[in-house]
Nucleic acid binder design. Sequence first.
DNA 1: GATTAGCACTCGATCGGTTTGAGTGCTAAC
DNA 2: GTTAGCACTCAAACCGATCGAGTGCTAATC
Lengths: 341, 341
Amino acid sequence: MLSERQRMILSAIVDDYIRSAEPVGSRSISKRSDVLFSPATIRNEMADLEEMGLLEQPHTSAGRVPSIKGYRYYVDHLVRLGGVKEQDVHTLRGFFAEKMMHWEGAVSHAATILSQLTNYTSIVLGPETFHTSLKHFQLVPLNETSAVAIIVANTGHVEHRNVSIPEGIGMDDIQKIVNLLNDKLAGIPFFRLKSVLHSEVAKELSRYVDHCEHILAMLEQSIEDEAEPKVFLSGTTNILTQPEFKDVDKVKSILDMFEETPKIMQLFQSLPDGIQVRIGTENALEAINQCSLITATFSADGQPLGTIGILGPTRMDYGKVISLLDYLSKDMSQLYSRWYK
Amino acid sequence: MLSERQRMILSAIVDDYIRSAEPVGSRSISKRSDVLFSPATIRNEMADLEEMGLLEQPHTSAGRVPSIKGYRYYVDHLVRLGGVKEQDVHTLRGFFAEKMMHWEGAVSHAATILSQLTNYTSIVLGPETFHTSLKHFQLVPLNETSAVAIIVANTGHVEHRNVSIPEGIGMDDIQKIVNLLNDKLAGIPFFRLKSVLHSEVAKELSRYVDHCEHILAMLEQSIEDEAEPKVFLSGTTNILTQPEFKDVDKVKSILDMFEETPKIMQLFQSLPDGIQVRIGTENALEAINQCSLITATFSADGQPLGTIGILGPTRMDYGKVISLLDYLSKDMSQLYSRWYK
DNA sequence: GATTAGCACTCGATCGGTTTGAGTGCTAAC
DNA sequence: GTTAGCACTCAAACCGATCGAGTGCTAATC
């Protein structure tokens, strides 16, 4: 258990270090107007905090730096959520005022704004289509052998792919298939689609057309792709402006990760609702062991839709980022709830 | 005009420097088995080459480094196109064997492979839809007030966006509109679509439905978006492995550029057909004044479709990259020509 | 006349040593 | 319990010496 004074000193050190990126000495703390103790007293407390594992010393004659545990304590007990700056609220208003033509547009735009407001990297994962349902299915023939299959979800999400048409299937066959599929599948949630496809559609389809396995397989694949949420990144190079990432090698592994969507998905897997903070080694991936990831989920009518996240150095402005993510995720949830109806 | 010996020395220096990234001295050149002159002779020639502006000296007591002009001469007259390595041909075969479901899939996959084979950054711009035509238009209503508009090109390219439905338009109106548009617009190339929309469709549409300006505006916008070629990047972090880009600041401006699609498009604007090499400051953007960009166009049946490019340091393996791009662009042209039919 | 051996010279890189200064821990006085 | 005082530590900055890769020039050689 920390004394009031220890908490205040820890808080001051973390705040200072977040601002300056330099180890914080006892003198500079005692100079602060809200601190009434001499450097020597501070030093004693700092030694205790270090013993508890909340602070670290890069070397004996340097100031202190928060440890992962120190950041954790700070985030859990000390951080002041200043709320969102007037100016930032304004920027965000602009975002929501704009007409969003796509799902993708809105989400990627949100990512851009987030990275600009924070100067960190923003990651947005969405939308989960697991609970959305099929609105419309369409096959547009391009020529005798190939066609475009288009799947529209009730959220307005569109997925498409080129498919080849099996020999011996004519235009009217295709129309029949499309009609059948729309009849049987429209309104079915994606997570049930696969089983419905097998149980109800397969038999019926085989009555109309030969070689229908091919079509079924294609449909299944499309459904699976559709179910995969997409990742949007913005401000990937912002990490380069951080003094602790001057070294190219440190940065490389992080930037490499950004090119690997599956790794990012893994990072976001099974995050609980609300705001989550993962500090340094608390993250699953070694590449970002020197980074912190703050995430917030957004949803529509209680259905989880996706996650927005900010990745920055462990020395991140937690107060600002948490406030911002909280604000934005709630607004996005509202936006999408409205959109849903 | 260069003597045979000067050409050989220049070639040796460029080759060496490309391999080692270190300034090349006279001794190391004269040691090569195919060079029969003493370091002193080489030095004299090097001094002459420097006077001509083909070589540069970082400082008096260092070896020589090719200048932009030197690389230019090398690329224009000296580079040996070794052809594509057996192993790389194999990898590329694998690429073309795979079934491509989308346009996007094929192009982005090509980008990935290119960056892996070269260890540079690959940029693929495509496809130009300017000369492709509209295959199918579809409006899928989501609810009373919004719908998804879907445009399918004859290449299988799909563009979509959410639109809001003006008050007072019912489901059967929408069906009428869709039918009309498909009747009038199917088969029309995109670059003529806008004028046809105004001349033929507008009047007819106003007969059916009130408030049709909204729908027309939306269509126009979609067509313009569709016409915009897309940019695919891969291996954006490869530049970080180059010794001359150890400095974070140098790298930042390049990586920042990768996040700005319009800048990349600008870079690729109005490139002539075939292989193009832009060395250092020959590039339009200051951010890549220390890089070279090699591009190759691909087409289907003579219609230009897009461009593939490799961005690397000026100290790039020109022979390998040029061969590779030449090979791949030709294969892609074939692939898409077949696809077209 | 072209080539090359020889040599003085240049200059960045590296290495060891010194100095500086920010910061600490400990002790003793308040 | 707090703090002034002091010895101590150690990275960073500074400095000069040395090293060595590479050059340009000149004179000897082929």
